[in-house]
Amino acid sequence: MSQHPSYLRVFCTFARNSLVRDMTFRGNFLIEIVSSMSWVCMNLGFYILIFQNTDSIGLDTGWGKYQFFIFLSTTLLVNSLVQAFFMPNAAEFSELIRTGTLDFALLKPIDTQFLVSLQRVNWASLGNFGFALVLMGYALSKVDYVPGVLQVILYPFYLLCGVAILYSLMISLAATSVWLGRNQTLYNFWFYITNFSRYPMEIYKGPIGTPLRHAFTFIVPVLVVVNVPAQLLVKPLRPQVPGDWLLPGFTVVAAAVSLLASRWVFNRSLLGYRSASS
């Protein structure tokens, strides 16, 4: 018997248990998928409405209707992954701290952050993942350009970078409940911050827009989460222009730094944990 648990096997068990649980309440599972998809459809309707009045978002930004649909599907892909794997767990983490049940997680012979972050998989959120793939396929068939091999390889990689950045932000926010007791406004905060990531970064310009764009790129890097992978598919990278590689390069660094920072915040929060139950 090895000293360390097999993290992959533990994760598969988590995923299987969650699936079993979801399948126990099949009606609820279906309702969840349908309701989150109708939310997405309504949003799609809103953008279709916008594109009835304009040809592109921003002058000469390249975000025409179908390019923006690719952007939108990228948003959906990232968000559905975050919602499926991390959202229920981060919400639960705040509760664990508040009620003191985190004791049980600390006692288990496995990394606490791993256990807390991945315990539950919300399979219903992956419905939007499928929806996004369909939308992406449709949009790609409408643009007069086929992504190359490099794009196809790099796209999932940057999706994962985006997921890593959002995960880090989320678990750090959840961890602050050690100091704050409870955090109702925290989830609003999360919603409002990620709100900035939902549109192409080119729209943030001018005396207020430019500082905003820089703040949400370099300080809280939520703008690169969707923009970088989406740009990769829509505006092909031209390796001969070195400037084109700056932002994607930065995204990799940002993802790594975010993960490390979230690890640090998480560990600090464990040190501040006082176990409400005992």
């Binding site: 304009t54 040809d55 939902r198 549109y199 827009g209 905003l212």
Partner: peptide
């Protein structure tokens, strides 16, 4: 805060 993004979105829409 969502209003801020809306302002930028519509400014960009009108620009085009």
């Amino acid at each position: 805060m969502p209003i801020v993004t809306q302002i930028f979105l519509w400014t960009a829409v009108f620009a085009a």
